[in-house]
Design a protein around this nucleic acid. Structure first.
Lengths: 157, 157
DNA sequence: GGCATTGACTTTGATCATCGTAGTGACCTA
DNA sequence: TAGGTCACTACGATGATCAAAGTCAATGCC
């Protein structure tokens, strides 16, 4: 945190203050592309975030208004985190982050991003944001945007 | 730096490892939108980066292949930093960062971003990337992409 | 040629953040 | 009621960041 609040009124700087650290954007990725929703799921991310940093980042993202924390109704131990509309609005940013990052990472044959990047950008963003509004994500779960996009592509062919 | 090299092969993580800190993306903003090119210009950024951190980030961005360091031919004290093609490819990311950030910052009447966001995204990205290839930037300098876009918009009207 | 200045960094020492590991305590499950 | 799960906290060591001052070559000005 530190001097982070309001170094300037530049929009880019605002984005940097919200997502410009080693973990915040990865948490948003887990939430929005993989459909992770609980502390434990985020903890088990590929990049191995520690619990103290995770707790701090979730609190910050909540304070920033991009995610909400909701205690589970069925299990009082559990808490679910989900994206607000402001968080959903960051999906194009995440999309461009994934697109640019593809150029620096080995191409994997069956990476679903390969298929996604071949689709129309606007279609992808629409389906993705809609899926998140309905509790889904890009790749995670049965009602994933990816599944819907693939089905539509097949139908059009 | 630290454990930063290759936590995973996820493209989003690769982007985070390159730009995911408080300063790297702001340096790219200064370079690509404002047309700054020298150490001193970056130092005088609105957000007041310190010289040691700036030196470190410039070195990292160079190692990442998004910028190049070139000693000036006319003045042997000076060094100019400019974007590589890989850096130019990050322009859509910067565009989305600015777009998302607009929602968290007070709207300023004469902010050129307001005008840019009203234009066609594809046109803006094209003109912007072309301007950078020619040594310009989005807003900085006479041959700015912004000036060109405004002129074209006026001609079309 | 001398001298203040510019420009690109380094150095330094104090402060701050992050890391990994080990809890803690409420809660559910058998 | 014993054992596990879950969402965090606490902690000490390590690493990054900060502001301010300093280095040093190159330049502009007289």
């Amino acid at each position: 945190m530190k001097r982070a609040e309001g170094r300037s009124t530049c929009p880019t700087n605002f984005t940097v203050e919200t997502f410009g650290d080693s973990w915040s954007l990865l948490i948003m990725r887990d939430l929005l592309t993989l459909g992770k929703h609980t502390f434990g799921e985020f903890l088990r991310s590929e990049e191995r975030i520690g619990p103290s940093v995770l707790a701090d980042r979730l609190a910050r993202l909540e304070r920033s208004g991009v995610i909400v924390r909701t205690p589970s109704e069925t299990d009082a131990r559990k808490v679910t985190y989900s994206a607000t509309e402001r968080g959903i609005a960051a999906i194009p940013l995440l999309y461009e982050a994934a697109r640019w990052g593809r150029g620096g990472v080995p191409v994997e044959e069956d990476d679903p991003w390969e298929a996604v990047m071949a689709m129309d950008r606007h279609d992808v963003l629409d389906a993705w944001q809609q899926a998140v509004r309905e509790g889904g994500s890009l790749f995670g779960g049965a009602e994933s945007a990816f599944a819907r996009l693939i089905a539509r592509a097949r139908a059009d062919a």
